[in-house]
Simulated assay, not measured.
Amino acid sequence: MNRRLAALANAHGVSTWYEDWRHRRVEVAPETVVGVLGLLGVDATSPTAIADALAAARAVDRNALPETVVLTHGRSRALPGPGVLTLEDGGRRPVDGELPANLPLGWHRLACADREVTVVVVPRRLPVPPRAWGWMLQLYALTSERSWGMGDLGDLAEFTEWAGANGAGLVLLNPLHAVGPAHPVATSPYSPASRRFVNPLYLRVSDTAAYRAADPATRAVVDALRPDRGP
């Protein structure tokens, strides 16, 4: 790849290579880099355009703030001027031309140079997670005497309690997200339409507040809807 094009891409945060699944370095095609830069509003379609864009990028203040500043804990960062940092816990701290190295971990807000940006302070190294074993299961297949033809959240609660008591550290499940609330209803549990809600098919009817508050006659009507488990 042309050295100037690579420098221009680097100035705008565009990768010019990546590591594939075999840990081999793969160079990105120059036309792809030019196309991505174009989407960012940077003309790199000719040597002259590349030179002009590179000169403009180098003229930008090195301390200019991006929308999100990621700062490793224990390190500082120069700023274009003084400002006020609002910490994640609500505390406020004045900063004079530099983000200090002793900021607490978390998501903070910085008001500086007539802008307000997010400051994320991250740890130098993540702790090694504890080793654990567990179960992988499809909830709809985890049936019991109390479920209505398919596994439900009540079955899941009983299973996780049993698994934890026997030393398991995790339970891996199929998606439990809600499907589209319109006909025809998707028959596959792998077609979630929302990550905000759980699929109501996994509710244990007898554990819901509405069922418990219902009068005996209403409960009898609901109970009659339960699929026949057969002999």
Rank of each mutant, 00 (worst) to 15 (best):
D223R: 12
L156N: 02
V120Q: 14
L172C: 11
A163R: 02
S191K: 13
P94E: 07
G134L: 00
P181L: 07
L225Y: 11
L126A: 15
W107L: 11
R124M: 10
P184V: 05
Y140P: 00
D207F: 01
R115S: 15
R92N: 06
G151T: 01
E98L: 12
N174D: 14
T118M: 13
G164M: 04
L139E: 02
V121I: 10
S144L: 00
P216K: 07
Y190L: 03
N199E: 11
G169S: 11
R124W: 07
E158P: 00
G90C: 09
N199F: 02
E88N: 08
P94K: 03
L173R: 02
P181E: 08
G134N: 02
D89T: 04
H183W: 12
P80K: 06
A111R: 13
G106P: 02
P100K: 05
V179G: 10
Q138I: 03
A217R: 14
R219W: 07
N166C: 05
D96Q: 12
A193L: 04
P181T: 14
W148H: 12
H177S: 13
G106K: 03
S188H: 08
A193P: 00
P130D: 15
G97H: 12
L126C: 08
Y202R: 01
P184Y: 08
P80I: 02
W148S: 03
L153V: 01
R131A: 15
D152F: 00
V185E: 12
V205W: 11
A178Q: 10
M136V: 12
L153Y: 02
L176V: 10
G106I: 00
G83Q: 00
Y211H: 08
L203Q: 11
R115N: 13
T187E: 14
A113W: 08
A101E: 14
D223W: 10
R93F: 05
L137V: 14
D207R: 11
V179Q: 06
W135V: 15
D207Y: 02
G83E: 05
S144F: 03
N102V: 06
P82H: 10
L225V: 09
M136F: 13
D155Y: 02
E158A: 14
L87W: 09
L156D: 01
V205M: 08
V198D: 06
Y202L: 06
H108C: 04
G90A: 08
A132S: 12
Y140L: 01
G90I: 06
V179N: 05
V222H: 08
G180S: 14
P189S: 07
A213P: 01
L126E: 15
A224N: 10
L170P: 02
L173S: 05
G180H: 11
Y202E: 04
V122A: 11
D89K: 04
A213L: 13
P200Q: 08
L172H: 14
G167Y: 09
P189K: 04
D155G: 00
H183R: 11
P129E: 14
P82V: 09
L201F: 09
E98V: 13
L225I: 05
L153G: 06
Y190H: 14
Y140R: 07
N199K: 00
R92F: 02
P181Y: 13
R226H: 11
R124E: 15
A209L: 09
V95M: 07
L142I: 00
R204F: 03
N166D: 11
P216V: 05
G180I: 03
E161P: 00
V179M: 04
L85T: 06
